[in-house]
């Protein structure tokens, strides 16, 4: 096993993939705390699928892939934040509508494009191993920007998630902060799409915080645990994917799922033990 890990670290492909993957892990884990707190899981699913339309658009108009997809995803996320909830269209219905609509648009656009240009499998399931230098720059820029904004707004988002009315009454600009949150979730989703692909992105955006939720007691501990779970899952996943030659994105998500199941059972065992003893 040790040999394999050394071999993994020595492999040039993995050595190149590891830093961006770990960076993505930290950024997504931070945002996943807010995704859990604000119940935005379905939004991440919706936005990641909607990014297919962005990618389709980029392929058709021969625009740069990642920036176009980013702009598109952020727009979709902001649109969802503005959906008229008071008119009776709930957020999940709105997400469902945009999700299906833009996915359909994406499929149409990509099917008419020259199929040789598009690595559809890579888009759908992610491939961190084939990240280009341009993408890498883009990725570093975003993973610098998102944590800074996260640090500035985290407590405000947290108190909105806890009690939006009181947050509003204490003078916080709740609607602007919510727009910022949705926009940043959109940005983060695009980062994940590179690693885990459209279909698996939700895994990276939900699972780290979901694991942390069993153990954390405050915003800070949740964030720290979420980052640790995410890093552990990503490293384990990449090692497995190297050893067994599995697709990297799927393996990372599976590793995170395993961490979730372990957390859950340990927590269940703990509460069962307390009841039994007490």
């Amino acid at each position: 096993m040790d040999d394999l890990i050394l071999e993994f670290l020595a492999s040039p492909v993995m050595r190149e993939a590891l830093p961006p993957a770990l960076l993505i892990a930290i950024v997504t884990a931070s945002m996943s705390v807010m995704v859990m707190a604000h119940r935005l899981s379905f939004l991440t699913v919706g936005v990641s699928h909607a990014s297919l339309a962005g990618l389709g658009l980029a392929v058709t108009l021969s625009l740069p892939l990642l920036p176009t997809a980013t702009v598109f995803a952020v727009l979709i996320a902001l649109l969802l934040a503005l959906i008229p909830r008071k008119k009776g269209i709930s957020e999940d219905a709105g997400t469902g509508i945009l999700f299906a609509g833009s996915m359909a648009l994406g499929v149409l656009l990509i099917s008419t494009a020259n199929s040789a240009e598009v690595d559809l499998f890579g888009l759908l399931f992610g491939n961190i191993l084939t990240i280009s230098p341009v993408d890498l720059k883009w990725l570093y820029f975003m993973s610098g920007l998102i944590p800074v904004l996260f640090f500035l707004a985290a407590r405000a988002w947290w108190s909105i998630a806890f009690d939006a009315v009181t947050a509003d009454a204490s003078g916080l600009p709740v609607s602007s902060l919510r727009l910022l949150l949705y926009g940043l979730v959109g940005l983060t989703v695009i980062l994940c799409v590179k690693l885990a692909g459209i279909v698996l992105t939700a895994g990276l955006m939900i699972l780290p915080a979901a694991c942390a939720w069993f153990w954390g007691r405050s915003l800070f501990s949740l964030w720290l645990l979420s980052v640790l779970f995410s890093l552990l899952g990503t490293i384990t996943g990449l090692i497995w994917s190297y050893i067994y030659e599995w697709p990297s994105g799927a393996t990372v998500v599976l590793a995170l799922c395993a961490l979730f199941v372990i957390s859950w059972s340990l927590n269940w065992g703990k509460s069962w033990a307390t009841v039994y003893k007490g």
């Binding site: 640090f151 947290w158 998630a161 806890f162 009690d163 009181t166 003078g171 007691r217 405050s218």
Partner: peptide, 29 residues
């Protein structure tokens, strides 16, 4: 103190963190 409370709070928080949220500069890092 309003009336519309979440009757099943989900966020893991200690009481003192809940109280800290009431501080006027809580959200300004």
């Amino acid at each position: 103190l309003h009336q519309l409370h979440d009757h099943a709070p989900r966020l893991p928080m200690r009481i003192r963190d809940v109280v800290a949220m009431g501080l006027a500069d809580y959200a300004t890092p």
